[in-house]
Amino acid sequence: MVNWPLEILKAFALAALMFTFLAIVAAMFGVLLERKIGGWIQSRLGPKHIGPQGLLQTLADTIKLLQKEHITPRAVDAAIFNTAPLIVAVAGLMSWIVIPFGTLGQRVLVVRDLNIGLVFFAGMASMTVIGILAGGWSSNNKYSLLGGLRSASQMVSYELPLGLALVAVAMEAGTLSTVGIVQAQGGWLGSLAFRQFPAFVIFLVAATAEVNRLPFDLPEAESELVAGYFSEYTGMRFALFQLGEYAEMFAMAAMATTLFLGGWKGPFLPPLVWFLIKMYAVVFLFMWVRWTYPRYRLDQLLNLSWKVLLPAGLIWILITGYRITF
């Protein structure tokens, strides 16, 4: 029936390919983009010494992080302390399984086109919370624990509007599979950004809060909580946490292009190039918002989720249901 050794080999090869892609695109270019864009918005130049235009800056940062001392404080719960960054990184990487990158002839470039793709994506976004709670608890440090609890409550509160936006998109497109949703959008005016504009806005706001970026990054606020739930992590484990967060941000951006901007569809260029252009446009939007807005307080943040986005999402689902039926 199914050739099991070949399937397992393909799974390993695709996982390695995805990790390499993410390590280069998300970690290296993403961190460099963040610092450069932040510099230009603040009227200064970003990093520019290492490599031409500062392109090798992240490589230098990675080498610096890798050679730092691997400290495990004495009173921590060693098993949980070491597993927490793994959970965050793996959950961030697993969200990439259902994202379609484009077409190559007839094949769609996706690791696995699950027919419950959206539900799987939301599930992986909610697995990150467990890694953060585990990391915050096991550090045996009041600030880490507070940062972990705050971050977990924020992420759990914003999963609801995220899920509601996904439900509205699934209702309009008629399928839960990401490839099906891309193929249900045709041309510019058919893309769901216009027909589902409130869902687009809700998704972007909830995605910003899910990856703990400004204006919702109270759990990592440097001026308040040292570094929040990853205060006690050094070296490679810190790099794993950061990788997980950046991979998740890029996954949210990729999902936004797949669901709302038409995925890989576009006139002249190859589909993969269109996908990357659209994904980087959304990432630029995330970074632009980050360097522009001040930070929300915890009660303002939770108010925004429960009192504004959740009712808006429910009302939009009602309107979408009405529009589809009549």
């Binding site: 027919n115 799987f120 939301a122 599930g123 909610s126 609890l149």
Partner: peptide
Amino acid sequence: EFVAGIQVLIYAGAITVLILFVIM
């Protein structure tokens, strides 16, 4: 597969977080 997706979303993603919150 739909029940599997809901199981990940609700059990592993929400109920476990709730239990961990109350323990902490």
